[in-house]
Nucleic acid binder design. Sequence first.
DNA 1: CGCCGTATTGACAATCCTCAAGTAAGGTGG
DNA 2: CCACCTTACTTGAGGATTGTCAATACGGCG
Lengths: 251, 251
Amino acid sequence: MASIRQSTLPRKIPCDECPLGKIEGFRRFAGNELEFIKGFKTGELTADAGTTILAEGSHSEHLYTVISGWGFRHKLLENGRRQILNFVLPGDLVGLQGSISAEMGHSVEALSDMLLCVFQRSRMWDLFRNEPGLAFDLTWLAAREERMLDEHLLSVGQRSAEQRAAYLILFLYSRAELRGMTNGRSFEIPLTQRHLADALGLSLVHTNRVLNRLSRRGVIKWQGHTLRLDRKKLGEIADWAPDQEKERPYI
Amino acid sequence: MASIRQSTLPRKIPCDECPLGKIEGFRRFAGNELEFIKGFKTGELTADAGTTILAEGSHSEHLYTVISGWGFRHKLLENGRRQILNFVLPGDLVGLQGSISAEMGHSVEALSDMLLCVFQRSRMWDLFRNEPGLAFDLTWLAAREERMLDEHLLSVGQRSAEQRAAYLILFLYSRAELRGMTNGRSFEIPLTQRHLADALGLSLVHTNRVLNRLSRRGVIKWQGHTLRLDRKKLGEIADWAPDQEKERPYI
DNA sequence: CGCCGTATTGACAATCCTCAAGTAAGGTGG
DNA sequence: CCACCTTACTTGAGGATTGTCAATACGGCG
């Protein structure tokens, strides 16, 4: 019953009231930027959990910004193995690659129900010509994604299974925290162990064992889809700390 | 005896005669772009093999384009383990991350002697304001780096040791090929097995065994620093093919 | 109720790692 | 020109980590 719908009218959310703008740590638009964005936005997209938003190898005319919900980017091997490359959260841009090369190099799938803002790829040139600030933001977002991938690659390449799991959980928490999606020491994650395993580059069985080990040590505690965690201990295990950005842009 | 020198005068290479412009597949500058670049460039940097060009955690005022030579980006863990994130070749931009966030998230080291073009970070704003085409190129380069990292992450996370090695060798060959640095079925790579191991996320010993296995199968053949390879077989082993870009920019 | 996706656990096997030692090649200084 | 150092590469042996196969348990949903 999962479905994906794209609507041009009616829009649920006018740009002036974009929920992203209300998140602390997300930069406000300056000058003419908001006006430009209003024109750049061509619709909204709702995607149910489990649906594919962009497919590897496809050629998309669109570019999206996540308004709400969780998703993930992934790639497949012919033997069926899947690597989750990164997770996408509110404020993240999706599909930039497709706007720059002919084909998408990865797929994007919704983890929870999602709401996305739709932009027209073809108008990106206007953005670069008329809104250098937003163009810079686009580059900023791309560089930040690169930074996250660097971290993941370090993790998958050099950390032990336990360290990897600790890193990933802490990473997801910090990203959720920035968006006000956490309370105290716990938050809601719409992931299954299958997703974690595919992000960690570990088998499902071993991922399960590692998570249970962390649970028994009292470092994390799953209950349904809510996760409580000890950030300090996780940071020590993983040898990692989130870098705090002052202010981040979004489009 | 390794050293790193930055000179403002005399410049060895005027932008009009930039060797990158002569590489087939690298886009030429249009309109005012070349003039802008001439002003943007503030010097040249020579780095001997083995020297560090940018250090993780540092705050660089500069941005570089590789003119000649090989290098690599890497990150360290406190326990001393190192992950090579990607390799940099002529035409690649280095240090963009430092221009966007406060600190470099990774280090860059020269594999061979290198020549780099130096740009002033502080003038990047001018670029976005006055040269939308070049601004787009910057984003293009960032998105392409992201794409390569996606591939590496897939590789390290999901491929077997042998597949990984096959992928990496083929990847390096295709990148060198685009720059005319290959002849027939062989090319020069200034890498040691230590570098390969750290890029593959494998131990040195196991990397050595895997490479020897590939040699015995007749898929590759090292001799000194030149490597001959069977691209077809490597592609089959790795389940990967390079995507051919029509034209790529550089700054 | 029965099915399906998810989580869990055991047993065993394969991959990959560490330790260790030895060879080969290149550079330096006497 | 040779001894000697250092770096890179090789190979063996044994062990740890992680993977695969298999079976079970549990909960939500039609």
